[in-house]
């Protein structure tokens, strides 16, 4: 790698981390410093273009887009974290067991492959319909069920190659139990692929959550969310495109920085993961 490219890498990583940190700060503190109440209606300020008073303009109820976009960061991050956690809790144990025990793996991986035959948004939509109501928990389950199988796949492939290592053989020869090998020798080494995959899970899941909210089947419309704002702004898209532009830019920046972080972590932690994750 040339020196210039290394600097470029560093810069993109710095950029990604910078954006992420600002978004984290925004998601924690925005309700305390945004200029307007994100839900305050103001009929005299309907569909105002971005200005000094309203940095990102206003929507059809006169609500401040800047305040709503910043506050929407919180719900996005809560959902992204919960969905990644959901994928971890189900994906890691299932993946390890499938990778370590061939018979278990044969059954579980078949089911996982079949689950992955349903395109992400279709599975999530069907699960939302089955669970009946829009809501945070239901969104976490629906989108989590989409990403957990992908986590299983990654953990499974990594376990398959890890268990062939000489140190696993040595541990077995020394009489270590399967449980001990799984925890002390395999699970520990799964950390890098799991961290990398979680970063990508976060990126994809917030995009999918936004799509669900955009379609009106995610979280209830009274919670400000980027997807929900874009859905509400559709009617006024030609007259007031800023209702859609700004939440979209925030969403794209979040996804972009998580993707950059994931790429960087992958190259840093273990370049061989390129073929798996």
């Amino acid at each position: 790698m040339s020196f210039a490219k290394l600097i470029l890498r560093r810069k993109t990583l710095l950029f990604a981390v910078g954006i992420l940190l600002s978004l984290v700060v925004i998601s924690i503190f925005s309700p305390y410093f945004v200029p307007y109440d994100p839900d305050a209606l103001s009929l005299t300020d309907r569909l105002k273009a971005p200005s000094g008073a309203h940095f990102f303009g206003t929507d059809h109820f006169g609500r401040d887009i800047f305040s709503r976009t910043l506050v929407g960061t919180r719900v996005t991050f809560i959902l992204g974290l919960s969905i990644s956690a959901f994928a971890l809790v189900f994906g890691v144990p299932l993946g390890v067991l499938s990778g370590y025990y061939d018979r278990v793996g044969m059954v579980i991986m078949r089911v996982i492959d079949a689950l992955m035959a349903f395109p992400a948004i279709i599975l999530a939509l069907a699960l939302m319909a089955i669970m009946g109501k829009p809501g945070m928990v239901n969104v976490i389950i629906a989108v989590g069920m989409v990403w957990a199988p992908r986590m299983v796949r990654v953990v499974y492939s990594s376990t398959l190659s890890l268990r062939e290592n000489t140190y696993v053989e040595a541990a077995r020869a020394l009489g270590a139990s399967s449980g001990r090998i799984l925890v002390r020798h395999i699970a520990v080494n799964l950390l890098s692929p799991v961290i990398v995959q979680s970063t990508f899970t976060f990126a994809f899941s917030i995009m999918e959550v936004a799509a669900l909210n955009f379609l009106g089947v995610g979280i209830p419309p009274y919670v400000p969310s980027w997807g929900g704002m874009m859905n509400e702004g559709r009617t006024y898209i030609i007259r007031a495109p800023w209702i859609i532009i700004f939440p979209g830019v925030f969403l794209a920046l979040s996804v972009l920085s998580f993707n950059l972080l994931g790429d960087a972590l992958r190259d840093r932690l273990d370049p061989r993961l390129r073929n798996i994750v």
Partner: peptide, 11 residues
Amino acid sequence: ASIPSFWLGLM
């Protein structure tokens, strides 16, 4: 890879 297709569509 980071821009949601529906947002791109709207733009």
